[in-house]
Design a protein around this nucleic acid. Sequence first.
DNA 1: CAGTGGTCTAGACCACACT
DNA 2: GTGTGGTCTAGACCACTGC
Lengths: 260, 260
Amino acid sequence: MNNLNAMPDTPSGAENLAATPAFSPLYQQIKGLILQSLQSGEWKPGESIPSEIELASRFRVSQGTVRKAIDELASGNLLVRRQGKGTYVATHAEQHVQYRFLKLAPDTGGLDSEGPAQREIVDCKRLRATADIARALALRSGDPVLQVRRVLSFAGAPTILEDLWLPGNPFKGLTAERLSVYHGPMYALFETEFGVRMVRAEEKIRAVLPDATQQDLLRVPLGTPLLSVERVAYTYNDTPMELRRGLYRTENHHYRNALS
Amino acid sequence: MNNLNAMPDTPSGAENLAATPAFSPLYQQIKGLILQSLQSGEWKPGESIPSEIELASRFRVSQGTVRKAIDELASGNLLVRRQGKGTYVATHAEQHVQYRFLKLAPDTGGLDSEGPAQREIVDCKRLRATADIARALALRSGDPVLQVRRVLSFAGAPTILEDLWLPGNPFKGLTAERLSVYHGPMYALFETEFGVRMVRAEEKIRAVLPDATQQDLLRVPLGTPLLSVERVAYTYNDTPMELRRGLYRTENHHYRNALS
DNA sequence: CAGTGGTCTAGACCACACT
DNA sequence: GTGTGGTCTAGACCACTGC
């Protein structure tokens, strides 16, 4: 049918070294097309996408092929299937697992035995990217970025101190006020207000000792070891959109991880 | 065809509370049958399982149904598909990612810029399970367990101190000598010598300060914060078969994790 | 070349949610 | 009942591996 695998003219540029087989199955191409519609905002977070049959006829392929494409997107947490209802664009809001990317859990009691976290914005200002911030966000040194510092508390005890950096352009208009007023996951606000959906992230974890300021903000005694969690979060197309450096108290909590 | 969904007589025991719909699709049942063959050792780690067509005729279902069952097992890292060759039972040996469950990576350089880890068995003895060890391994307090302590070094620098506990029965005959001589991942040895394949694991991570002994074994200055990684590893049927408590130095390494 | 997994199709039917 | 995703089948063909 509409196989796009026709080998394009092999460009004779010097960079073209690898003999790429350049075969991709139909369902991968469909996956790409669906992804484009997600990026372009044709279907927004929380909304339903067209039915499989509808997409099949739009793309001129069988329902099974669309199914396989959607299957992969769903297993990557980009889409959510709901039997009998439809397929929906995943969102950080209204997702009963409220903090999907936060892996800190209390040692005892259920996952939300502590109720919702209290948030306090400590600081929020615009500045110019240093070299390491720029590198993480795929910007240039000196580009405008937004820096936010906040403290999360559980059951009244300050537990997480986070610094985060956002590229200035996509987040024009984000203020401390807006962050303070908003109730719900920060990533949900990013979706609704700025059209930025975080899709995946990578974390690097270390054990560190806090400096004086950090120690003070977390109200922790001198020499208390803390978990340092550095996260880079990505939107569609693997564009980095946030750098976050967190310090977690782990006397009564732990970072949980499943291996398989 | 051979749908096993025939509702069995609902047992009228008092425990039978939930009105379980008790419907499971054919491919899930096939998945269960394949799992049984894996557990029973009919197909051993590293070996190939019968072809899809063969399994389809054995189970009297279509190839597509077998495919879906295998797909799920493969995405759970129990099986490995190799196009043109066959489907193989996953193994911790000869798996080019040598340490599949070790998430510690050097800060700079490639993943194996340091070459293989040096292993040193510090201690290995049989003893009786304490209450917490027993709970983690689904044993009773006082049951025999094997305790191993070892140090892993990268590029000559001691980096990981691990204590691990194994249920005494399945690991009868495991000695310090055997562990010292063996080159390769410990889980590979478990497979070949004891028929125990680790399938998945859960980790709880904290920041801690080492005690005097630990500090000494890792040759680390006083007050150095370390990553505490507690792991429970499971075989088929979610039976816990290992409790491991690791201390990681993170001055030049980090625990990496991908979120999605 | 034969055998394996991988893709694609078309059609039938089931389970679930809503109206 | 209608429409959605979910399961199952049967058959054709493609891509990869190794003889």
